[in-house]
Structures are given as structure tokens and as C-alpha cells.
Amino acid sequence: MSALKIVCAGFGGQGVLSMGQLVAMMAMKKGYQVSWMPSYGPEMRGGTANCHVVIDKDPIASPIITDGIDVLLAMNQPSLTKFLPHMNPKGTLIANASMVKTDAVPKGITINSVDFTAIAQEVGNLKVQNMAALGTVVAKLPIFEENDGLAIIEEKFGAKAPDLNALNKAAFTKAYHQ
């Protein structure tokens, strides 16, 4: 396996940084080498917050992804605009359906358009849209299984926010099976 390069991007507040952390933690528990790198440069209001997650069997060369994104999670339109030119032409796009138009995405890229915002609203709290996104990421990445996602959500948030955690898991499961 060569390095699997994942970029998670969205508005600040959509939870993409912590979602990316969960992806890295899951892969670490499966014995992979992982790195997680946040964007910490100045960002425009209305622009994107993002993190780069690299998963590899071998030691990771660079935690910063400039090109060849294998999996892009775009929670909003500016994220797609910013990272689409840097995608692997055979990569996978996971898009937040209600906020991201995917018309301009070239053939060759697999598009998974799921309405994470709607799932979060159905479950009852907009905050958990990142866990819905995690559900689709786990469903689309062959290295993970459903239980990996549920276990990591429990580990990360179980003690910290028990009330919200049921919603986290509900959003995750709903998106995973969609």
C-alpha cells in the first residue's frame, strides 16, 4: 500500500478537524502509521478549515498533502473548489450534498454525495454532522469496519459528552448505511 492521503475540509465549526483525528486514531489502532496535520495558517471568513490525514504501512514521509488527494471530504463548496484541483484523478470525493454541487467534478473521481446536514438535523443536533461524515468515510474506506467507527466515537466522546454521544452514533450509523 502506498500512502493513503485524506483531506477533510469545511467551514470552521463543522467539526472537520476532530473528524480527521478520529480517522487517524482508527487507523493507528489498526496498526498503520498515521499523521494528522491541521491547517493553521490564516483562513478567510467563509473559507475552509481543513486537516490532512496520511495513513501508510511504512513510515510517513510528509504529513502535508499538496497533491494526489485520495479521499476528499468536502463539507462545503469552498472546500471542493480549493482541493478538487489537487485530487488523485481516480480518487474518492465525499460531499455534503446540501452544500456542495459536484457538477464540475471530472469523470474518474468517485462521487459519494450524502446530506450530512440533513442527517444531523434528523438526529436532532447540527453539531453531529461530522460524525455523519465519519460514517460515510468509514463505509467507503476498505481498511475500516462499522465497529471501528462506533468504538472510536465511544472512546473519544463517551465520557466527555455522554448525552451528545448517542446522537453521534446515530448520525454515524445513519450515514454509514446510506
Binding site: S35, W36, M37, P63
Partner: peptide, 10 residues
């Protein structure tokens, strides 16, 4: 460097 400072690794 800023990479070591900001990134997460096991």
C-alpha cells in the same frame, strides 16, 4: 519546526 509542533502522530 511548525510541522512537528502542529501535527499529530502516534
Amino acid at each position: 519546526d511548525g510541522i512537528i509542533g502542529q501535527m499529530m502522530e502516534p
